[in-house]
Design a protein around this nucleic acid. Sequence first.
DNA 1: GCTGGTCATTTTATCGATAAAAAAAGGTTT
DNA 2: AAACCTTTTTTTATCGATAAAATGACCAGC
Lengths: 259, 259
Amino acid sequence: MATLPKVRKAELAPSKKAGGAVAVMSKQDTDVTDQGADEDASLRVHAAWEAIRDDILSGNLAPSTRLRISMLNKKYSIGASPLREALSRLVSENLVVAVDRRGFMVTPMSVSDFRDLTNMRKLLEKEALRLSFQHGGERWEADLVAAFYRMGRVQERLDAGDPSTLAEWEVLNREYHDKLVSACGSEWLMRTRENVYVCAERYRRICLSIRNVPRDVTKEHKQILDAAIDRDVPKVHKLIDEHLERTFQKVAESGKLPN
Amino acid sequence: MATLPKVRKAELAPSKKAGGAVAVMSKQDTDVTDQGADEDASLRVHAAWEAIRDDILSGNLAPSTRLRISMLNKKYSIGASPLREALSRLVSENLVVAVDRRGFMVTPMSVSDFRDLTNMRKLLEKEALRLSFQHGGERWEADLVAAFYRMGRVQERLDAGDPSTLAEWEVLNREYHDKLVSACGSEWLMRTRENVYVCAERYRRICLSIRNVPRDVTKEHKQILDAAIDRDVPKVHKLIDEHLERTFQKVAESGKLPN
DNA sequence: GCTGGTCATTTTATCGATAAAAAAAGGTTT
DNA sequence: AAACCTTTTTTTATCGATAAAATGACCAGC
């Protein structure tokens, strides 16, 4: 009863998980969605999940908006079952809240939530960085440098006043931060961090819309990069705290959020 | 576009959230399910979610078991839509894994997963404790002492060799650890910790089934309690690390898990 | 004896229909 | 005009049916 069945995996899960493999991956290949394996974009649930998620993150579906099945039905041409399934997932991912018999709504935003979220991110990010510094090798360093340069490029264009690069900025910023922690070696930490990162995206977007204090993000990223190469944990912890805190401050002071 | 709609909450969410209120709450009142508000036990999704979850945590549904809709259908007499919805939630909670077009299965267990999980728990638990020490007042201390004593009682009965108290032990152990961090004041931390705690339950159950080294859990809990009353953060961090690590070691060495 | 292909069976993913619950709209009575 | 019933309308939660995909069985050929 207590003993476990030997292994019996593999039949269901064709995932490879790429332990030491290098994973070249050209990205922007066909389009989206196909990152590891097992994601089938032709599934309605998947389409619904992605569409709603994107609309929430982009602000297209504003915080506290009620998500009526009939409305989503028309908007995305997807039936009730896959929609509800997608919404259930989004609930667990904290982008949607549900009340029994009363449906779903986009998770509200507030300063206090962002305060909490920022603290959580600091905790996870710092631990992931610490571990990544321990386990990351030369390959990791090289990839990190590359991600930093790509990020710098798009930052230049953004600073030059081209707002069409906003989406690209978000992607590259994310890739840089992902790369930083990518060597941490903890599935749980990565999963959780990912979730928190995604939920912070709506707030980050507000931050980007504020163009008063000309904060030098590239410089901040450069300092973090240097600390990473030096494996200077205390330094990078301080930098990350400041980096995240600065974003929080800007958003909190913007007056665009309740509470 | 970027500005948010004023508040417009309340219509959907009747939750009170009890900021400073004391929340007496007699518990074991009518029965189960009705904890805060908005949980409607008559919903099939809810029933399915709870039933499958319990069966996974109790080991009734072994790790790596495939969860075929038809099988669950017969077992719980619930239709496909609510079942899939419940399974989707469980996927986000890491108790079930899904592969597109190939269905669901109970998340496998392994030593390496438990290693990772334990590290994650240490991180979250320690941070939550630190915050709880900061914010917890007299009321919190009193509740903590109460939870400790209740726990000690059931521990005695368990040590006396009564295996029927196992479920009760799990509940009280949980209440003690919950109480410890209950004053931390961070929604995100609590949510995440909760998820990790639940996923560790299957492993904890293995630990309980090993009755070789007569580990004195009550003493460990007492030390933690004392450190909590003293607000001794470094001490409680050390104790929690050891507490969780000890469980990990026992399970890892039991040979009941692959990898 | 294994490899590869075709057919039968099982299982997933999804739609459309429907009972039950919630919200909205009126209509009384005080 | 505020509190309270009814009646209508909307919306959620769920079932049963079904196309498409995956799995398994069977068979032929090298």
